[in-house]
Write a protein that binds this DNA or RNA. Structure first.
Lengths: 190, 190
DNA sequence: TAGAACTTTCAAAAGGTTCTGAAAGTTCAA
DNA sequence: TTGAACTTTCAGAACCTTTTGAAAGTTCTA
């Protein structure tokens, strides 16, 4: 087996599969996952029947190791399932087809984690500024950090509502997101 | 100047600033920008007054080059503005404070670009599958690719509506996002 | 129990991204 | 026009992420 990529003639089916897999890979990457996870899921989704790991690796030109890791991670996210085929030695895998289930899982696990960590740090920052030493701009800075915090809180609430109702209303952001903010009005500094 | 990071005593203000900057950096990174862009914007936002590039670099321990590149990119996204100070040689920078303006700019430029590119590729894939050679699973695969395409189209529409109205309604996804999908019903294959 | 078929793990390599630092570029005052 | 102050650019360095490939592990059959 040569070390260079082989460019065998590709069937239209395979070509379509690669095109779609890579497109969905880009979306998935944009959501902070590895592109390969999106590609593997898409191959399974398009196949419309369970596939063995080796077949996936072959279609996407991945090593057995990479295929195994991708499938493990996809299962951890509940978007791919292992399927047992009577009489088959190897395992088969199939794609979860319920998009909403996938979306809400990602939002409720991963996004919440990030939002929580950000909220905590902003709270600490606000506390530091409030409790500590008075300077010419400390008050203004405290206001700004508090505004960031409000924003994160509202966003977090909106996201949670979204998962429950499938609707997001950003109206509550009101003048929180969009405000002209008098900038250190009437003040000058060196 | 030593090559190692110096750990001078840090004022509570500075500590708060770094904490908040890094938290917002994490959010921004999650949206596909460099973390440093989030940190620079946050320092400017918290400062609540225009700052010179050198001051930003100092606070975040960045080189002049990195600071310059970050500020250029932030301006390109319209989230930081250059400010001229009469009598000052150097340039000052201030943060855009209208969150909504920032969000909608990112959505309408960057997200749309991604969605368009994905849509195009899925359309090509669907075309390839439809026009080409009949196989036992080609019909099922075509259906799947078409479903991905519908999903992207609905998502794109929802995002555009969101930017216009500040509301997203994912109800139109209806059974598009959540469907039990009869899986190759009544068919078996080797 | 031995061995074949298959899967998982992980250290090292490859590949990608971001930052540094110095040189080039720009602007302004004199 | 010169030189000081400041900014930008970019090649190489540093850093981070992902993949490979081979060894170890697992499961099943005989």
């Amino acid at each position: 087996m040569p070390a260079v990529a082989e460019h065998l003639p590709i069937s239209p089916q395979h070509q379509a599969e690669l095109l779609a897999a890579d497109a969905i890979g880009d979306i998935i990457e944009h959501w902070g996952f590895r592109k390969v996870l999106g590609r593997v899921w898409t191959v399974l989704f398009i196949a419309a029947e369970p596939l063995p790991a080796a077949s996936i690796g072959e279609r996407l030109a991945m090593s057995a190791g990479a295929t195994s890791m991708a499938l493990t991670e996809l299962q951890r996210w509940g978007v791919v399932k292992r399927v047992w085929r009577p009489g088959e030695r190897k395992e088969f895998f199939e794609a979860e087809t319920d998009f909403w289930k996938m979306i809400s899982k990602v939002f409720s696990e991963r996004e919440r984690l990030l939002a929580d960590s950000v909220r905590e740090r902003l709270e600490t920052a606000a506390k530091l500024l409030r409790s500590a030493p008075p300077g010419p701009l400390t008050k203004a800075s405290t206001d700004r950090v508090e505004r960031l915090l409000s924003f994160v809180l509202v966003a977090q609430t909106a996201l949670e509502g979204f998962i429950k109702s499938r609707q997001v209303d950003f109206s509550p952001f009101g003048n929180l997101v969009s405000f002209p903010l008098r900038v250190a009005k009437g003040k000058k500094e060196g």
